[in-house]
């Protein structure tokens, strides 16, 4: 058989999943180099595919990673999650999907310090960067504005990472108990990997995003927000034009999203720990369906029946 030209091989490879690409490195020396070609990365992302998820699991063994190709899952639902063998690391965060891992130099640990990690790429220089945003939870009871943590959910859109922030005010000067604190939402902060600047991003003026149960999500390349309204209703907001306050619109509602098979277990889970009791909108699939993570236990695909606009 005649050999296919390099650009055709690149084209074929760019349509493969990350795991298949890693295997392709073993085919021959020429392919080993092809897989490292920066052009391949660009082509890979240009073929709009459903995302590959990396699942981080602490139960029953700490720090287990699994990968899941969603496009495979849709076509045939027999594909399981693949276990990712991770080297024995003391503790780590999953910041983004990548094909390799590096160990970062240890940063200074200070008491009452919290940090959020972010990962992205400078598109001009093609350099990947990991950032660590550190803040202190010092409880100064004389001042009202105490700390503004970045929520760990981050969204990478247009070469910028975005976080939603919270403000926590202490309402009781005397006790300073958590129960006395009031939460309120603060701006969306972006970090630009190009110029390394933090900026504030426009929010809708209606205040609907200032809810405690609200998180950011990337929907079709737009910064979007999932607002948990009441018990079983999720509002999806999308910023259609980047950083334009007026372009934020409520795109659709997700009604009763608890899958029936999980509903019965619901009651027993009342006492479940806080962290695992939230649902999270993960993203949009190519089919237009919404992928939802249900209380750290199940991934749910939801068909959107009705868009509020158009």
């Amino acid at each position: 058989m005649k050999c296919l030209p390099r650009e055709i091989i690149l084209d074929i490879l760019s349509r493969l999943s990350v795991t298949s690409l890693l295997q392709a490195k073993r085919v021959c020396k020429a392919w080993h180099n092809l897989v490292r070609d920066p052009l391949l990365v660009c082509m890979h992302f240009s073929h709009v595919k459903d995302p590959c998820l990396i699942l981080h699991c602490d139960d029953p063994i700490k720090n287990q990673l699994y990968s899941l190709e969603l496009s495979d899952l849709i076509k045939d639902d027999r594909r399981d999650v693949n276990k990712i063998r991770v080297p024995a690391l003391p503790e780590f965060y999953v910041v983004a999907r990548a094909m390799d891992y590096i160990e970062l130099p240890k940063s200074k640990e200070l008491p009452n310090q919290n940090s959020v990690f972010g990962f992205g790429v400078n598109q001009t220089t093609n350099k990947y960067k990991v950032i660590q945003v550190v803040y202190w939870k010092h409880r100064n009871r004389r001042r009202r504005d105490i700390f503004r943590p970045l929520l760990p959910v981050q969204v990478l859109v247009r070469g910028r990472l975005h976080w939603h922030t919270w403000s926590i005010f202490c309402s009781s000067r005397i006790t300073g108990n958590i129960e006395d604190e009031q939460f309120s939402c603060c701006p969306i902060i972006s970090f630009d990997f190009e110029d390394e600047q933090f900026r504030e991003v426009a929010m809708p003026s209606c205040g609907d995003l200032d809810k405690i149960r609200c998180h950011l999500v990337d929907l079709g390349g737009c910064v979007s927000a999932a607002v948990f309204n009441g018990y079983e209703q999720i509002e999806i907001w999308i910023m259609k034009e980047y950083d334009v306050k007026e372009s934020w619109i409520k795109e659709f509602n997700i009604g009763n999203h608890v899958p029936r098979s999980l509903e019965e277990e619901e009651e027993e889970e009342e006492e479940a720990d806080q962290k695992s009791s939230f649902d999270r909108v993960v993203g949009l699939l190519k089919t237009g369906e919404v992928l939802l993570e249900y209380k750290c236990r199940a991934l749910v695909i939801i068909k959107i029946m009705e868009h509020l606009n158009n």
Partner: peptide, 27 residues
């Protein structure tokens, strides 16, 4: 056609991919 070729080799072993493209292992 390239999409079709990609579908035929995805999740296949390295040996299968080599045979598919007629590539010699030079490692």
């Amino acid at each position: 056609l390239t999409e079709a070729a990609a579908n035929r080799i995805k999740n296949k072993s390295v040996e299968y991919v080599r045979a598919f493209f007629g590539i010699e292992n030079d490692f």
